[in-house]
């Protein structure tokens, strides 16, 4: 069901918590990642995604709980684990006045890799034309591709990417996706990716973990998550006429509805179109309000997140 070839757990997070001064960033999270699985940590800013990933990366230490990577904890195993992990941090900046090639060469030397691996990575990350450019002169997308290339240098068994496409335009984002989709084909690498773009989680990952305020609110494959409330249909509508006449509380007795009087738009959450929609329409008729537009929309992860937490993924 989860689309990975075997059931060997490579990352095992057990009841992990972490606080900073007053803020409880991560509260008792359990998480398992299987070999070859691509897992998304999806949540708004400040949900605790980065803290969780940095604990898995060994950069932060959990206050409580345990983390095992291929059965090993960080303590005493740094050297082994660094060899098999590739990471890309949020907003890393490399040495400004080194070229792309020189930067890759420096990082390749940490892993004692052959020079040909640098060529492979330059090709893989689509930086052939930029390999002689200074890092400081790269665009945001090129810089992220370089960061991803560096993360992939050692052919990591485990890849940890913290918001790899945040701040990029759609084209640059798609370039990153292409690289990761190609990687997924091989099923050699397990990935944890944090993002607040639901499209990214949907497109790239086999398994999605919704996270909010330091806790997992739901998890599963995309289909499992969307099946959660399958019988409920989302129907969006917009109205015109004297909208203050609309008897909202009367309608909400029968139908779950979000309504914004200023824009004249709303959403109905309906289990039975045949039974409930006529009720809504007759309520409009009674108040002499006409229906400008109505459509039944595919449900998204954002809808699920909203129904679970009352917040949107893109909360500022």
């Amino acid at each position: 069901m989860q689309g990975h070839v075997n059931h060997k757990i490579v990352i095992d997070v057990q009841q992990v918590s972490k606080s900073f001064k007053q803020v409880k960033a991560v509260r008792g999270i359990d998480l398992q990642v299987y070999q070859g699985q691509f897992l998304a940590l999806l949540g708004p800013n400040g949900a605790g995604k980065t803290t969780l990933v940095e604990m898995i990366e060994g950069i932060q230490k959990p206050d409580s709980g345990k983390i095992f990577i291929q059965g090993k904890s960080w303590k005493g195993n740094e050297e082994t684990l660094h060899q098999i992990i590739g990471i890309s941090l949020q907003e890393t900046r490399f040495i400004d006045k080194l070229t792309v090639y020189e930067t890759l060469r420096l990082f390749a030397s940490f892993y004692q890799l052959p020079a040909r691996r640098i060529e492979e990575i330059i090709e893989l990350s689509g930086l052939q034309e930029k390999h002689k450019s200074y890092v400081v002169n790269l665009s945001g997308g090129q810089r992220q591709r370089l960061a991803l290339g560096i993360a992939l240098l050692n052919q990591p068994k485990i890849l940890l990417l913290d918001e790899p496409t945040t701040g990029l335009d759609p084209t640059a984002r798609r370039d990153i996706w292409q690289i990761l989709l190609a990687l997924r084909e091989s099923r050699q690498t397990s990935l944890i990716l944090t993002t607040h773009y639901m499209e990214e989680a949907e497109q790239l990952c086999d398994y999605i973990v919704l996270i909010d305020k330091g806790k997992i609110v739901s998890q599963g494959t995309l289909n499992q998550l969307l099946a959660h409330d399958k019988e409920v249909k989302n129907i969006e509508f917009s109205l015109e006429g004297n909208l203050s006449n609309l008897n909202v509380s009367q309608i909400q007795k029968d139908i779950q509805m979000d309504w914004d009087e200023i824009s004249g738009k709303g959403t109905l959450y309906i289990k039975s179109i045949e039974n409930q929609l006529p009720t809504f329409i007759s309520a409009l008729k009674a108040n002499n309000i006409s229906l400008k537009n109505i459509e039944c929309r595919r449900k998204t992860l954002n809808d699920l997140f909203l129904s679970l937490t009352g917040r949107e993924l893109h909360d500022a």
Binding site: E57, G58, I59, E79, H82, Q83, I85, I87, L89, E91, T92, R93, F94, I95, F107, F110, Y111, I150, N154
Partner: peptide
Amino acid sequence: SKKLLRRMIATPM
């Protein structure tokens, strides 16, 4: 401050 240090020590360096 560029977070380059933490990136570098996440390798076997």
